[in-house]
């Protein structure tokens, strides 16, 4: 397992380099200029100097190599310096956002917590709702509960978040007044009251996204359970006189979870990517909102960096999913 993981990690390096080049070129070649936001009253020579100051006049390949160096050396070194007070990255140029002129990673550092709390919680809530629904639906296939679960999943699948989110706002914020309509990014949780406030303002975005997540995962869980329910080993477990509880929650569930855990792991990078629509709808100032803002402003370094981080996470969680599979299923041996 260890050599497998190491081999896969090594293999990920050329993969990621190729992906980074593609991302860099794609974003770079897209039409639009970082200067389009600068008013036309700015004289051309000033405009030229501004472009030079950003490094935007360099040929694309130079900028690519520079960016690679910044991404893989300068930024980690800066982070390291921040932790241990060393000076590895002193005097080095960090990746700067063209829009705000501040380091891209500083912005990400500000935005990520919002995204992780809201979207991460939604994912967790989605899983916690989905697993019992999927398990019980499969155990009582075609029952009223199962049909209710199917309806729930269908709604979760087919209703877009901008609709369900708006609906939740109307019902729970406007009519019932239980939760605020907007997410307050400035809120600091330091006592019980602010904690309650935080929970309240998270409720609607978490419900919106949790519904969508739960729909997909509950279906996976259900079909995986059904696949296993008819297996011979289940009959063996019953023939041993084990209770239905043990048969289903031990024998069937343990097997059914293997593919579901993999799917859940593969879905985690999407949390970091944020949920653009939901973040916008509730005013959660997270990564999704940052990405949209950067795209609008032609903030090429920001878009490139975010897209590449996303690629790294996908590759990483693919590996994690494979490793988990190997750990959960004794039949899989990678070495």
């Amino acid at each position: 397992m260890l050599t497998f993981t190491l081999r896969r990690l090594l293999l990920a390096i050329p993969t990621l380099l190729a992906i980074s080049l593609v991302i860099f070129l794609l974003v770079d070649l897209a039409p639009g200029s970082p200067m389009s936001e600068i008013p036309l009253t700015v004289p051309p020579d000033v405009r030229q100097r501004m472009i030079e100051a950003l490094g935007a006049d360099q040929p694309v390949i130079v900028r690519y190599v520079l960016w690679l160096r910044q991404f893989f050396w300068v930024e980690p070194a800066t982070l390291f310096d921040g932790w241990f007070g060393t000076t590895w990255a002193e005097g080095e140029q960090r990746i700067l956002s063209w829009q705000s002129r501040s380091p891209v990673f500083t912005i990400i550092g500000q935005r990520l917590p919002q995204t992780l709390t809201v979207i991460g919680t939604a994912y967790l809530v989605g899983i916690l709702i989905a697993l019992p629904i999927g398990i019980y639906s499969a155990y009582r296939q075609y029952s009223l509960f199962d049909q209710g679960g199917t309806l729930f999943a269908m709604i979760g699948f087919s209703v877009p978040t901008f609709f369900s989110g708006t609906l939740f706002i109307i019902i729970f914020a406007v009519w019932l007044g239980w939760f605020p309509t907007k997410y307050d990014t400035q809120l600091v949780v330091n006592d019980w009251d602010s904690f309650i406030k935080q929970i309240q303002q998270m409720a609607l975005p978490v419900m919106t996204l949790g519904l969508a997540n739960a729909a997909a995962i509950s279906r996976y869980m259900r079909s995986s359970m059904l696949d296993n329910m008819g297996m011979d080993y289940v009959r063996t477990a019953r023939a041993k006189g084990l209770s239905e509880r043990t048969v289903v929650l031990k024998h069937v569930l343990r097997n059914s979870l293997i593919p579901v855990v993999t799917v859940i792991a593969l879905g985690i990078p999407a949390i970091f990517g944020g949920a653009i629509i939901t973040e916008n709808l509730f005013g959660v100032n997270g990564i999704g909102a940052a990405l949209i803002g950067a795209i609008h402003a032609n903030d090429i370094p920001m878009v490139q960096t975010l897209a590449f981080i996303f690629a790294v996470l996908i590759v990483l969680f693919n590996l994690i999913a494979d490793v988990l599979y190997g750990l959960l299923d004794p039949r899989i041996r990678y070495d």
Binding site: M231, D232, Y233, R235, T236, A237, H251, R254, N255, I258, L328, D329, P330, R331
Partner: peptide
């Protein structure tokens, strides 16, 4: 071949 649970 199929009567025993593969994961236990």
């Amino acid at each position: 071949m199929t009567s025993l649970n593969p994961v236990f």
